[in-house]
Write a protein that binds this DNA or RNA. Structure first.
Length: 555
RNA sequence: GCGCCUGUAGCUCAGGGGACAGAGCAACGGACUUCUAAUCCGUCGGUCGGAGGUUCGAAUCCUCCCAGGCGCGCCA
């Protein structure tokens, strides 16, 4: 029951009829809006078609609107009335009875209400987090994790075939640096006073790692270590850290289908394949002993080195290979979620996508950094410097659900201030509990009713006529609009729309609950309300599911 | 210097061509013998950073300026 689509079709058909009858003259049907109104006096839906068509039709907007109304025929009982308003909007007032249908619809679909086949046959990959295994996940990674996971859920709910991937940078200098860091911590444990390298990873986790290394029975390295020894230490540390990252993500409720190693690109010869492909297309050239990708041919500000004059390939070369591989795996859309500090990297990667012939199939979502505060004071966060708050700490302090909800209450491209003290202090006023409470409250109502021997009886649409309160109609409309909202969120890759919807639905439910009793002596009314609020419960659970937040039966 | 993101109520943020700009928190005043008060009801609070422009219509699009954040390697 996509009401907007239904109305849109009616409007379009009406305009065509008006043209056929000569009441309206226009060449082509322009794009027009059918929007939910902000104010009740404007009805339920409004269109701006008359305003847009006025110029073409050479008639005043309100006159065009009248012509559309005159030629519009809606199904019996659907429309209460239509009004021309303001400069030429047409407002549609939907009959109450129409909204009751949503209850049966939710009943029919069950927990799948809100799902759709929007993305049928579309294969999407969401790559997110992909933090280097050189330290624990911090709060910024948490934001990316929550977003990527919710986005993948959202796309799956709308019928896309979704795969979640984590890209592991396990090639290059950082392994050596990691090994060096471990090495120095080991020597410290051996009682030596060594000067820790400035470019080392200074966090305390490296000290723990060193202790664990010895505890596991590994021999401490001697002085003057060979580079191979450092690399081995680096790999060891990387593996341990990656295991920890996996554990953190699992506990954060985030699941991945693939963990893709950068080293795999080399093992499989994909980097050379990438070079060969670009070479073949004429987008590689040599200069100053280095190999360059002609990124400027696709709007990047400068060409980019893929192989340095010393023969080493760059990080960018890996990404060329990695994305070529992604596209060859047949994804219609590849979504990369990155921290905003990598934004300068977007044009060159888009250039690669274009060069390889996959224009428009790569979408990079930049997640702005989280500025972490503790009682209003900024906390500097650097992995290398070792001062940061880990995702683990945040989970422990404010809980998985609260953290995820907070992350998903902001647009990705907006800076996020996360004050730990505030998040803790306000944990009871946190919007996540507000929404969860609505769900638990309804569960409680049904438990209470059950205890009184009152069960929800079979669906009888005639009873819904008893739902006449403004609160009830308002809730019905929200429920009816939910599937479209989910589709819109998916289309725009914006999970936060779900968050806002849920908060609003919970608000309406709480208000309704407070003013009116669901369980009463009036059997018919009780049944009608049961059916209504069980629809609310279903939708709350669905939305929370998309966000990866629990929908508790009791709180 | 150049580029990207941001600037909306005291604070944190939605809204991103459409009708009188919204929510939460904070502040203030009310509501529990009641299906869960982690709730509800009300009050207060905004020249949408500034100036021009486009449009029937601009918080929203364009230009310039101001402020904050982040980038600008043959690093990863």
């Amino acid at each position: 029951m996509h009401i907007k689509k239904t109305i849109r079709d009616l409007i379009a058909a009406s305009a065509e009829r008006a043209r056929a009858s000569g009441a309206l003259a226009f060449e082509t049907m322009p794009a027009f809006e059918v929007e939910a109104t902000k104010h009740a006096e404007h009805g339920d839906l409004a269109t701006n078609l008359a305003l847009i068509l006025a110029k073409q039709a050479k008639q005043p907007p309100r006159q065009v609107a009248q012509a559309i109304i005159d030629h519009l025929t809606a199904p019996e009982g659907m429309l209460l009335k239509m009004e021309i308003a303001g400069p030429g909007f047409i407002n549609f007032f939907i009959a109450d009875a129409y909204w009751y249908k949503v209850i049966a619809e939710i009943h029919r679909m069950g927990t799948a209400y809100g799902n759709s086949n929007l993305g049928f046959g579309v294969k999407v990959q969401v790559e997110f987090v992909s933090a280097n295994p050189t330290g624990p996940l911090h709060i910024g990674h948490g934001r990316g994790a929550a977003l990527g996971d919710a986005l993948a859920n959202l796309l799956a709910a709308t019928g896309h075939t979704v795969e979640r991937e984590y890209y592991i940078n396990d090639v290059g200098n950082q392994i050596l640096t990691l090994g060096k860091s471990l090495y120095f911590r080991l020597r410290e444990l051996g009682g030596e006073a060594v000067e820790f390298p400035a470019d080392g990873y200074q966090g305390d986790y490296m000290k723990d790692l060193a202790r664990d290394y010895l505890a596991a029975g590994h021999a401490a390295p001697g002085p003057e270590p060979h580079a191979d020894d450092l690399v081995r230490l680096g790999r060891y540390a990387g593996d341990v850290i990656l295991d920890e990252i996996k554990r953190d993500l699992k506990d954060f409720g985030v699941r991945f289908d693939h963990w893709f190693s950068e080293s795999e690109l080399y093992r499989q010869g994909l980097v050379d394949q990438g070079f060969a492909r670009l070479q073949e297309l004429g987008y590689l050239y040599e200069q100053d002993g280095a190999l360059w990708f002609k990124a400027t041919a696709f709007g990047d500000e400068k060409d980019r080195v893929v192989r340095r004059s010393n023969g080493a390939t760059t990080y960018f070369a890996s990404d060329v290979a990695y994305h070529l591989d992604k596209f060859q795996r047949g994804y219609n859309l590849v979504v990369d979620i990155w921290g905003a500090d990598h934004h300068g990297y977007v044009p060159r990667l888009q250039a690669v996508a274009q060069a390889l012939g996959f224009t428009g199939r790569l979408q990079v979502i930049l997640v702005q950094l989280v500025s972490l505060l503790r009682q209003g004071e900024p906390v500097a966060m650097t992995t290398r410097g070792g001062t940061f708050v880990t995702l683990r700490e945040v989970m422990d302090e404010v809980g998985k659900d609260a953290a995820r909800f907070i992350f998903l209450t902001r647009r990705p491209d907006a800076h996020l201030e996360f004050d730990l003290e505030v998040a803790k202090q306000q944990s009871n006023d946190n919007p996540v509990y507000y929404v969860q409470y609505a769900h638990a409250r309804l569960a409680s109502v049904f438990r209470q009713a059950g205890a009184q021997g009152i069960e929800r009886q079979s669906l009888d649409p005639a009873r819904f006529l008893r739902l006449t309160l403004p609160e009830e109609l308002s809730i019905l409309k929200m429920l009816a609009n939910y599937p479209e909202l989910v589709e819109g969120a998916a289309r725009n890759l914006e999970p936060h729309r779900i968050t806002y919807f849920l908060t609003e639905l919970a608000a309406q439910l709480h208000s309704y609950y407070y003013k009116h009793r669901f369980i009463s002596d009036d059997v018919e009314l009780t049944q009608a309300r049961f059916w209504l609020v069980s629809g609310v419960k279903t939708v709350l659970a669905h939305g929370l599911g998309v966000l990866g937040v629990e929908a508790p039966e009791t709180m």
